[in-house]
Design a protein around this nucleic acid. Structure first.
Length: 818
DNA sequence: AACTATGGCCACTGTT
DNA sequence: AACAGTGGCCAT
């Protein structure tokens, strides 16, 4: 063993975990937790920081004498301490209880109704030690990779002596992308690998039989000691597949930084009837590897780009402008036997594409910025659970101020009604010149600030009264925690934006841009979390008051402007569409600035976002398009909201047709528009259309999540009740397509897009056939179906100008004789 | 078991 | 033909 060297470095925290240590001390057994911090230093070393003897604690509100007595003499309890906490508007007596073993906490939560008793131990550690994503650590380098019988794979293992948070710094993480090739349901043939650290990139392909491949895979991850493991759909496909194959061969995948096995967790599940599905269908499996972070490039690329088709080839083309080598997955075994070099080339190319997609969309940088703003390990920001981010800021503030922290709510309180949301003004359909779009800057955050909305300011003595009649104390009397956090986030964001503008290099600019975006995301996330039915600090009076203030503000401006004779043609939540009373752009801008100034007060700021000329409003809400002619400066840019061109589940012909139709409408060429639509329908009906243009795609949910409808019918003759169960899934086109795809050897995992073409809509349910990459499509589309859907789409625009289906017909003169 | 909200449009099925 | 129920995706 080495001498113990001093260690000191700046470190980014990737993941935090702990273990229970127990040792003999003077004949007695001493038990304590040891926190394990996994990270990478600014200088590029991987480190494990060990922090022993940090203990778990929680609170009891209004503890009984009996409870205090019991806990004081409980051998599992390290210490108890009386204190006071603010809860439900007043100071209340409380007990702070410290245990030896984190895992004991739930039993005390249940037995004593303890609060702040469901905070994960790693978060408790970070909160209490005031740590964030980036830290400065000092300690003793333990030299050996063994510690108390435990092994770690990092360059350094350090017994922590001093630690403090430092500002976010840019430095590279080690990223490892991979892609497997396997015979469907069978053997893994090879694994392509890209390993990147800063500018340095290495590639290789593992081969030599499945056992060797899997052993090499695990060995390489450990040897390279990567921070991020990535690949295209690795969570739902590659990792589960590898796990399954490794299990068959009896191989261990002990690839965690503490040599713990990787773990795959199934997320989501079925929603109860009448309830919305809570889980983003984009992830249904989560892969956990201690000390490392799994980042599925498919998940983040789809989140960022919302593509219609989500195959690697479609995404690579869209994001990188690169083509993917074609290969028939169903014949991989034969291809491998014939020409393994080609298969390997293909495999590596896929790995590189996935890797470059991840780089291009800058996911790692974005989440690092979020980790630094939310003050959490990178791992926890990647879990995409906003409540974790808000907890990190809010619980710390509550602890500082002695405010009680309830446990996460696990019941819906039964009859609880949803709060009312934003106000949407029915649009006045038409085509308008020079429409000014105003919106409130960060409406809900500024409402929170302006009205000092917080759990801690709710009070009957409050002088700020929300439209719901809920009262909040004025800022001068007591500043709320929520407004305080909001204010510091918004202030920090203004500073980041300023530094971004002053940046001298692109890297510096990106750095501040990432920060200001993260600050914005976090500020906006507060409303959602505090209005959630499940969050620990949820109070409907808060969420309800926030939206009520918002609605009131918007409606008041609409009324005021209307009473002044202005024409408000649309409004949604925090936006207002006002037709300019002036003929020129300059006058319109000046007019808009006056309005924006008039309605901005205190923390609430109404901004002139853009001027649209012309603007088309349909008779439906949330559907409009126009040409932006001004947005802080002159512009000329078409934008669309809501229509099929924005939707991933429309077919390309429909998207293209509408896009062109929009251009005709914006050029005020209605005859051109009609002629164009007629021509497209003619082409379609004469079969002059690519199959690709008729493909419809939607995201498949897990089959078990579809509802089962129970229908009750009464037998008229005998008065018997017949109960029939019907599975919704059975008649959905998407499920039909998924099942047929599987019959043809293409597995579609839930969360991925399924593509199909309608071949017969004359029957119910309609018949569809899957449209599969690399496989022939031997059916004839139902052209009537597609014609009718196109006509419906076109008419939703054209009926604003009083055109009807007859105007889209090729023989309009026939109508004269009707 | 749930771990960010509500408002909204449209496609489709299956009943009346 | 009108409707209720369900699913999916989008606006904010």
């Amino acid at each position: 063993m080495h001498d113990m060297d001093n260690f000191e470095a700046d470190i980014k925290i990737l993941d935090v975990s702990y273990y229970n240590h127990s040792q003999k001390k003077n004949g007695a057994e001493e038990k304590f937790p040891v926190i394990e911090i996994f990270g990478r230093s600014r200088d590029g070393e991987s480190v494990t920081l060990l922090h022993p003897r940090f203990y778990p604690h929680f609170h009891l509100l209004n503890p009984t004498d009996k409870a205090i007595k019991e806990l004081s003499s409980d051998p599992q309890v390290k210490s108890v301490e009386t204190t006071e906490l603010f809860h439900e508007g007043r100071q209340q007596p409380a007990l702070n209880v410290t245990l030896y073993v984190p895992g004991d906490t739930p039993q005390y939560r249940d037995r004593y109704g303890a609060i702040a008793a469901d905070i994960l131990f790693r978060f408790r550690y970070l909160y209490d030690n005031d740590l964030g994503y980036c830290i400065h650590a000092k300690g003793k380098d333990l030299g050996s990779k063994q510690m108390a019988g435990r092994s770690y794979l990092t360059d350094r293992i350090v017994l922590l002596e001093e630690v403090k948070e430092v500002p976010y710094f840019p430095s590279p993480l080690k990223i490892f992308s991979f892609d497997i090739e396997n015979i469907i349901g069978g053997e893994i043939l090879c694994i392509g690998i890209v390993s990147q650290f800063g500018e340095k990139r290495d590639t290789c392909v593992l081969e030599g039989g499945e056992r060797k491949i899997l052993e090499d895979f695990a060995r390489l991850i450990k040897k390279e000691d990567c921070d991020i493991l990535s690949g295209y759909n690795v969570c739902n496909y590659d990792f589960p597949y590898i796990e399954g194959r490794a299990a068959r061969l009896g191989l261990k995948l002990d690839i965690g930084r503490n040599l713990r096995h990787m773990r795959i967790r199934q997320m989501g599940g079925s929603a109860k009837s009448g309830e919305k599905k809570q889980v983003d269908k984009g992830t249904n499996k989560v892969v956990e590897i201690a000390g490392r972070i799994v980042v599925d490039s498919w998940y983040f690329a789809r989140k960022e780009k919302r593509p219609k088709r989500e195959t690697l080839s479609a995404m690579a083309q869209m994001i990188l402008g690169k083509d993917k080598l074609p290969i028939d997955n169903t014949k991989l075994g034969e291809a491998w036997a014939k020409d393994p070099i080609q298969v390997k080339e293909y495999c590596l190319q896929d790995t590189i594409l996935s890797h470059e997609i991840l780089e291009k969309i800058r996911v790692i940088d974005k989440y690092q910025a979020l980790a630094s703003v939310a003050r959490l390990p990178l791992f926890d920001t990647f879990s995409d659970r906003t409540s974790v981010l808000i907890d990190s800021l809010f619980i710390r503030e509550a602890d500082r101020q002695g405010v009680a922290v309830p446990n996460t709510r696990r019941s819906n309180n039964g009859d609880e009604e949803a709060i009312e949301g934003g106000y949407v003004l029915q649009p006045i359909a038409g085509l308008y010149d020079r429409v000014i779009v105003f919106d409130f800057a960060s409406l809900y955050p500024s409402v929170i600030l302006q009205n000092n909305i917080c759990l801690t300011t709710l009070s009957d003595e409050g002088t700020i009264v929300s439209p719901l009649g809920v009262k909040f104390l004025a800022r001068e009397v007591k500043q709320g925690m929520l407004p305080r956090i909001m204010s510091s986030l918004l202030k920090a964001r203004r500073e980041s934006k300023k530094l971004m503008k002053e940046a001298k290099t692109t890297d510096e600019m990106e750095y501040y841009n990432g920060l200001q975006l993260a600050q914005k995301i976090l500020a906006n996330a507060h409303f959602g979390v505090f209005s959630s039915k499940f969050y620990r600090f949820t109070d409907q009076r808060i969420g309800g008051s926030i939206t009520a203030f918002g609605r009131e503000g918007t409606k008041r401006i609409i009324q005021t402007l209307q009473s002044e004779g202005q024409m408000i043609v649309y409004s949604d939540t925090d936006s207002l569409f006002v037709v300019s009373p002036f003929q020129t752009l300059d006058e319109t801008v000046a007019f808009g600035q006056t309005i924006a100034g008039r309605f901005s007060h205190g923390d609430i700021s109404l901004e002139m976002e853009k001027i649209i000329n012309p603007l088309f409003l349909s008779s439906a809400k949330k559907r409009y398009f126009g040409r932006i002619v001004w947005a802080g400066g002159l512009k000329s840019e078409i934008f669309v909201r809501g229509f099929e061109t924005r939707r991933g589940d429309s077919f390309d012909l429909q998207t293209r047709g509408l896009e062109t139709l929009f251009e005709y409408i914006l050029s005020r060429d209605q005859n051109g528009a009609l002629e164009y639509c007629r021509q497209m329908l003619r082409d379609l009906m004469s079969g002059k259309v690519e199959l690709e243009d008729l493909v419809i795609s939607k995201t498949a949910a897990d089959e078990s999540s579809y509802k089962v409808i129970t229908e009750e019918t009464e037998d008229t003759l005998f008065g018997e009740k017949n109960i029939r169960e019907r599975k919704v899934a059975d008649s959905l086109p998407i499920v039909q397509a998924m099942k047929k795809a599987e019959k043809r050897g293409v597995t579609i995992s839930p969360g991925m897009k399924v593509s199909w073409i309608v071949v017969d809509s004359g029957i119910t349910p309609q018949r569809v056939e899957p449209y599969l990459d690399g496989l022939p499509f031997d059916f004839s589309p139902d052209y009537i179906y597609y014609r009718d859907r196109l006509i419906d789409s076109f008419l939703r625009i054209l009926n604003v100008f009083n055109y009807t289906v007859d105007d889209l017909s090729d023989n309009p003169q026939l109508n004269l004789f009707d």
